[in-house]
Structure formats: structure tokens, C-alpha cells
Amino acid sequence: MAMSAVARETVFALRRQIAKIEGTLPERLQAPAGAVSDAGMAAADRTVVRRGIAVARPDAFLRTGIGRLDAALGGDWGGDLGGGLPKAALSEIHGIETRDAGAVAGFALSLASLILKPSLILKPSLVLKQGPRLPVLWIGTQEVFREAGFPYARGLHAAFGIEPEQLLFSEAPRLADALWVAEEAARMKALAAVILEVRGNPQRLDLTATRRLHARAQSAGRPVFLLRQAAEPEPTAAPVRLIVSPAPAGPRDTVAGPLAGSIGRPAFTISIGKSRTALPGQFILEWNPDERIFDERRIGEERAKNPVPVVSLSRGRTDPAAAPGAVLAFPAIGSPAAGDQPSRQQRAAHLSPRRAG
């Protein structure tokens, strides 16, 4: 029995709503008229719903310029869009530890620099004119800015090409106020992007709050970046989650070659924690402050440039390591005999509590 027109449109509406929540829109493909299926009914009554890039705008994604990363993030299903971060969406940028806040902020500023790049638009008079450069709003609480600080104005212009008046800050006394400001700012088309920086995993930033931010970003067609300091992954409405940590900088390139002992471009280690393609991956990106683009550094090149292994900090230990002592060929004067217990004064200093500083 052929499906009625009302029921078919209801199914299409439900599928479209689900695809909108997932961040993709369905494309309706009608079968050729007159074709007959195996069941004997007209194939024109059947409609295939497919999600793909055919309905996506060419500017729907913010491309990092790194093909492998953009393809892994989603948006590249065989077309020429190249994928990348969805512009009209909420995207999470995580820092596992508090000390990674500088790398997270630097990566967010790199994305803001890509968004604020001067764009040329074609007028009816066939004259190329630079498009408007909208500001970016950075929202955080007093605790966040006290811990990580504010970006340096002169560094913004030198490293990212961002003018001081293009980066606005909103310091809220509480997280509830910061979320309210972010929701109101996310709906404004007078902003190029909205950055909300949060510390840890607060209970107020739940799935409902991130759904509101994601819906506002979709409605305004502007990206909202959620920066997380020392946060654990949890369910959110963001279709993309990136985990950012600092990578060792390579030597500075000169005409004569790499300059030994120098510090080159800032580098970031990017791990994909969540994406629409569900493809894991780890990338090392270098930010080129001159051309304002990303360059990829291969993992093998990273080891070749930095042959000395980097030892991670120890964690989960209850006591500090024992202090090294001198090895003597004969017992020291006044040392206890074998089997005797040392006195309290003779115990090692590391066994007693010490006050730092």
C-alpha cells in the first residue's frame, strides 16, 4: 500500500529535524518518473533521503588548510569543499591540564585569525572591495582570566594580525552570567565569532546549556568556540571536540638553514576527540605568523628535530622519590649497626613533612 502524502511529509520533516540536530541537512532525491519497483508500485512515490555536502554552502566550513585534518573533521564526502570546522556550530577546544591554557588560547586565536582574514567581495560595479571585519567576543569568568590571563595586544597584531579593537572581552563574575552573555552574543550577526572559556567541568555547563549555544550558533550562522581548561570529556551538543596541547617548537628557519638553539614558530598538538566522521587522529600544526596559515609537521619530523625524549611529569604518587646518598666502602662513624633501628634524628629528611618555600 502506497504511503500517503501526509505521512510521507511527516517522515521527511522528522528526518530533516534529526539531521539538523546532527549538523547535516537531508537531500531529497526523487526516483525517475514512471519507474516501477519490484513490489509493483510506482518508484516515484518513494523518496531517498541522503545526508551529504550537496546541500552545504561553500563557506559552511572553516578550513585549517591541512587537508588530512579537515577531512578527518568532516564535511568532505567526495566533494570539493575540503571539510573543516563547521562555522554555524558549537566547537569544543579542550586543554587536559591547566598549564595547557596558553596553547588552547593560542590555537583559538589562530582560528580567529583565519575567520578575520580580509575577504574580497564582488560588487555589481565589478569592483573588488574588502568585506567587513567583524569583532570577536571572548567571554570568561574572573577565575578563568585570573588563572590564564588576557592575550597581549601587541602580540595579537604581530602573531595573528588581529587589531586590539577586533577582540572584545567580557569578564563575568559567575559562570551563570558568562553563559547568559554567551547565549545572547551567539545570536548576534554583528560578531564574527564567540569564544567562551570555562574551567573544569561545572555542573551548570550541561548538555542542555551546550544545546542552546549550538542552536544559537546555527541560527546566526556564526561559530561558537568553547574553551575548556583542565576539563574531562563529557556529553555535549558540539559536533567537534579538539584536544590541544603545546608541541616543542622547532628551530627558526633562516637563509642559511635552521638556526641552532633558536625558537621557531609556535606549534600545537591537535587530537580529535569527537567529530562527525568519528575518525581519530593526531596532528602537529605550526602557526605561520607571516602568512597567517597553518603548516603541518609530521610526527617523524618532530622526532628528528627533537631527538631528546621529553619525560612527562609523574602523577599519582603518594611520596616523593628518595634522596640520593653517597656510597661508602666502610661504615660511617656513629652509624647504627646492622638490624638496629635508626633514631628519629637519624631518619632521612625526605620521610618527614616539609613546607614548600
Rank of each mutant, 00 (worst) to 15 (best):
A2P: 11
V6G: 07
R8L: 06
V11F: 08
V11D: 10
V11I: 13
A19Y: 04
A19Q: 03
P26C: 00
P32K: 06
V36G: 06
V36W: 03
D38W: 12
A42E: 13
A44F: 10
A54R: 11
P58L: 05
D59H: 11
F61S: 06
R63I: 05
R68T: 13
L69R: 04
L73N: 03
G75Q: 01
G75H: 03
W77F: 14
G78D: 00
G79P: 01
G79D: 09
G84F: 03
L85V: 10
S91H: 07
G95V: 00
E97T: 13
E97N: 09
T98P: 12
R99N: 08
R99I: 08
R99W: 11
A101G: 08
G102Q: 13
G102N: 08
G106E: 04
L109R: 05
L111C: 01
A112N: 08
K117A: 13
S119A: 14
I121V: 14
L122I: 09
V127F: 07
K129C: 12
R133L: 11
L137G: 07
W138L: 01
I139E: 02
R146N: 10
E147T: 10
G149M: 05
L156W: 00
A158G: 06
E165H: 12
S170I: 07
D177I: 04
A182I: 06
A186T: 05
K189M: 11
I195G: 07
R199K: 10
G200V: 02
N201K: 05
N201R: 06
Q203A: 15
L205V: 00
L213I: 03
H214K: 08
R216L: 09
Q218T: 08
S219E: 15
F225R: 03
F225E: 05
R228C: 06
E234I: 10
T236I: 06
T236K: 00
T236N: 04
A238D: 03
P239C: 00
V240S: 00
A249H: 02
G250F: 08
P251T: 00
A256F: 15
G257L: 06
S271I: 15
G273I: 02
S275Q: 00
T277E: 15
A278D: 15
G281E: 05
L285G: 04
P289G: 05
R292M: 04
I299N: 09
I299S: 12
E302G: 08
A304C: 06
K305T: 11
N306A: 11
S312H: 12
S314K: 14
R317P: 08
P324Q: 04
A329P: 10
F330W: 14
F330Y: 15
G334V: 02
G334C: 03
P336C: 04
R344C: 07
Q346Y: 01
H350M: 03
L351W: 12
R354Y: 08
R355Q: 15
